[in-house]
């Protein structure tokens, strides 16, 4: 039973047509937002569902970038960047360290701590939210970036798990021969394992950065001064109807806020897909 060639061709054509249509529906809101950032204010809703602008304007970007309350988006973006980058560095390296401990060293109580760690993945953050706030309040860390950065330096379960999966895939003989040569555990980690798990470090970095960049509740709790706002909070303030009359500018800044994530998506897609499929991370 061989299908005639033309029949197969029609089937393939319909498949692609449907999948493309679906992809368009999925991307429609994003396309609408992006192109609306080039529409004059009155056209944003005047044109309804139409994606492409009738009159192209580019003023929305400089207008939006000027920000509000005398603080421009350069400040908000640099705040976001500092929080995300400094936090990511901590979470990538502390998680790699812990992953090596769990994956390669047999010590008493290893299973107990491992189970504890896996349980933290399932713990709803809200349970610790209030006491953490009180704690950081007592430390005098409110209105600093510290509550958003410091916890990242104590390993995150998802990334530990991800790195462990990767380390478990490396032959044990590597460590053993180095060990026989007189290399310490730290030496093995630093000079043998770390260079080999660069892909899973990259995956952790990509996710950590995106989560940090998107985080809303953390900054909402801990940052009250506009000069400290990251982009997420700034956008929310900016979208407040009382503060804003220009939707084109709002969508211009919204589009820009997605830019770092889109760049990661384009250049680091491999790491994203790998991370999701090996651990079932949420994206």
């Amino acid at each position: 039973m061989v299908e005639p060639k033309y029949k197969k061709g029609i089937k393939t054509f319909i498949y692609h047509l449907l999948v493309l249509a679906g992809a368009f529906v999925m991307l429609y809101p994003l396309l609408w937002m992006f192109f609306s950032s080039f529409k004059p204010h009155e056209d944003v809703f005047g044109l309804g569902a139409r994606i492409l602008p009738v009159r192209w304007v580019f003023e929305n970007y400089p207008y939006g970038w000027a920000g509000f309350g005398g603080i421009s988006f350069s400040k908000f973006f640099s705040n976001s960047l500092v929080i995300a980058v400094v936090g990511t560095i901590g979470s990538v390296f502390s998680s790699a360290l812990v992953a090596f401990g769990f994956a390669r060293i047999k010590f008493k109580g290893r299973n107990f701590w491992f189970v504890c760690m896996m349980l933290t993945m399932m713990l709803p953050g809200q349970v610790t939210m209030i006491p953490r706030y009180i704690m950081f309040h007592k430390f005098g860390w409110i209105d600093t970036f510290l509550p958003l950065i410091v916890p990242h330096y104590f390993a995150q379960a998802f990334f530990v798990f991800l790195n462990m999966q990767f380390i478990n895939g490396l032959p044990k003989e590597l460590d053993e021969s180095a060990y026989v040569d007189g290399c310490s555990r730290f030496g093995i980690f630093r000079y043998i394992i770390l260079p080999l798990i660069v892909p899973s470090l990259a995956t952790s970095a990509v996710f950590s950065f995106i989560w940090s960049w998107d985080d809303f509740m953390g900054p909402l709790l801990y940052l009250n001064k506009p000069a400290l706002y990251p982009v997420s909070i700034a956008l929310r303030m900016y979208s407040d109807p009382t503060a804003l009359t220009n939707y084109g500018a709002l969508f211009a800044m919204s589009s820009l806020s997605l830019l770092p994530i889109l760049l990661i998506f384009i250049f680091g897609q491999r790491y994203l897909v790998e991370g999701i499929s090996t651990t079932g991370l949420k994206g």
């Binding site: 502390s94 360290l97 812990v98 401990g101 010590f107 555990r185």
Partner: peptide, 10 residues
Amino acid sequence: ICGYIFIAPF
């Protein structure tokens, strides 16, 4: 000892 040093951050 070593194991605990590695997982100390956690």
